[in-house]
């Protein structure tokens, strides 16, 4: 299978702190790739560099054959980003949010409206499309957050902790959506602190800590490195790699 994303020696430093340190990995086409790590491991900084928002201090990334540092416009045409935060406009309706971000992704007004309707249907919000997002529940807001990322018709979708603070129903709906998107040919980079989520969804997982990629492989492969794959949980794998000490 071809690599859709290839990160090579990616590095970033903030105020004397090495946030990301020579990280290299690849994500194959139509793969759901989990990026795991404790708080402050460098996951979000890595995603911000992959999504062209933050320029790396060193290294480069190719997405769909285009360099993030030199051909960021081409890269942006191929990605959709769902950040950790609810990065949307709560005063506006879900439909208005989606149409606006669709226009920003280069769609015409008509295309954006049509895709917004389809996408809201996909995330189960078609009947609330005209309501202001601030009236939504936490789970519904999360689904709008993901729907916005889909408005660029991305080939690669970044989902940064998309299920934080929501009920099991909404979480399940998001899982189903992610799996359906992969089935349609989309590649997904997924970060989460919920290990069972990563175990259920991800084809391969990379574990980051202190800005470095310290483990990489399919969930079963990582489990085998720690113990019996049949009985070992991904949480045990995670704690084994990253340690049990508390993080800031």
């Amino acid at each position: 299978m071809d690599d859709f994303l290839a990160a090579d020696n990616l590095s970033k430093r903030f105020d004397g702190v090495q946030a990301v340190d020579s990280v290299s990995f690849a994500i194959r086409s139509q793969e759901i790739f989990g990026l795991l790590g404790p708080n402050g491991a460098g996951k979000t900084t890595t995603i911000r560099m992959l999504s062209t928002v933050l320029a790396p201090d060193g290294g480069d990334v190719e997405i769909g054959g285009y360099s993030v540092t030199r051909e960021s416009d081409e890269v942006r045409k191929r990605i959709g980003v769902c950040p950790q935060e609810l990065a949307l406009y709560p005063e506006l309706s879900a439909s208005d949010n989606l149409v606006f971000f669709g226009r920003m992704a280069g769609l015409s007004g008509r295309e954006a409206k049509s895709l917004a309707a389809d996408t809201l249907e996909r995330v189960g919000l078609a009947d609330r499309a005209k309501d202001a997002v601030r009236k939504y529940s936490g789970g519904m807001k999360r689904r709008v957050n993901i729907a916005i990322a889909l408005m660029s018709r991305p080939q690669l979708l970044f989902l940064d902790e998309p299920t934080v603070g929501i009920d099991p129903q909404s979480r399940n709906h998001i899982f189903d959506t992610v799996l359906a998107l992969r089935g349609e040919g989309m590649t997904v980079l997924y970060t989460t602190h919920y290990m069972e989520e990563a175990d259920r969804l991800c084809d391969r997982i990379g574990v980051m800590d202190n800005g470095r990629l310290i483990a990489l492989g399919a969930p079963a492969e990582l489990k085998a490195q720690v113990g019996d794959p049949a009985t070992t949980t991904l949480e045990e794998v995670f704690l084994n790699f990253t340690g049990r000490s508390l993080r800031d």
Binding site: R48, S51, T52, V53, D73, R76, K77, I79, V81, P83, Q84, E85, L86, A87, L88, Y89, F101, M104, A105, G106, I148, S152
Partner: peptide
């Protein structure tokens, strides 16, 4: 809340 940053990951 990240809206500005999100906009920069589009073609804007």
């Amino acid at each position: 809340n990240g809206t500005l940053e999100r906009l920069l990951s589009t073609r804007l």
